[in-house]
Amino acid sequence: MIQVDVANVSKVHVSMKGEPLLALLDVDFRVEENEFFSIVGPSGCGKTTLLNLLAGFEQPTRGELKVGGKVITEPGWERAVVFQEYALFPWYTVAQNVRYGLQRKRVPEPEQRRLVDHYIGLVGLRGFESRYPRELSGGMRQRVSIARALAVNPSILLMDEPFASLDVQTREYMQDELLKIWQREPKTVIFITHSIDEAIKLSDRIAILAPRPGRVEEIKTVDFPRPRDPTDPAVVHLAAEVKLWLRRKVFENRRSEEPAAGRQEAAH
């Protein structure tokens, strides 16, 4: 069943100098219910813009984004977001952060307590309920952020490079945990990352974005069984293929930009 429908979406950003800039051009894809869908691409390809549109923080210049047939017009808990820098409320404890969305949803009080306890347990943070975010490590903060997003029972989980600022060991551990949680409580996940290995490890499908203007170049299906072994030849092959392709894209981009930059220099 198709759940998220991104239909011919273009987004123009206006730069500080007032120049219009094409951030996304005719982006078009669909995400199935309970699918783990990743979006990869080099920086500047409009990944975060796409997530902002899906979350409802921004509106597309052209085209439409729909969830379950309804056009996205504003942010809402049915599309909970996990941010790269966690975005936890520093003035609330772990438990209060996880509870935040439940209070906004007007969930009855005893049910709130049960859900907070359940999701704090799910991300392995029992015993830290009354700590403030600043007292936690990066990995623990991101787990709070995931628990906070899951607690409101969103139909879609939007994740914007959630593990990018963690160290390698913590990142791999968090990836495994996320997969476990996702398999236990299936949800549609739209996962943004610049790491191809991460995308291949986690996803059902991967959309590869090309930069300037941001557009979907290809959508790859990853149908290896989970858990995936990063040394499995098939996985290695797929990763190498995508990486090679991306490297070529970045290289082409550089070349197409350099003469223009050179001309600007000469004009000064």
Partner: peptide, 15 residues
């Protein structure tokens, strides 16, 4: 106020 905190609030359903 940090934009991300405002966005986090909005996406968790804050009026």
């Amino acid at each position: 106020v940090d934009t991300y905190l405002v966005r986090a609030g909005l996406s968790l359903g804050a009026r």
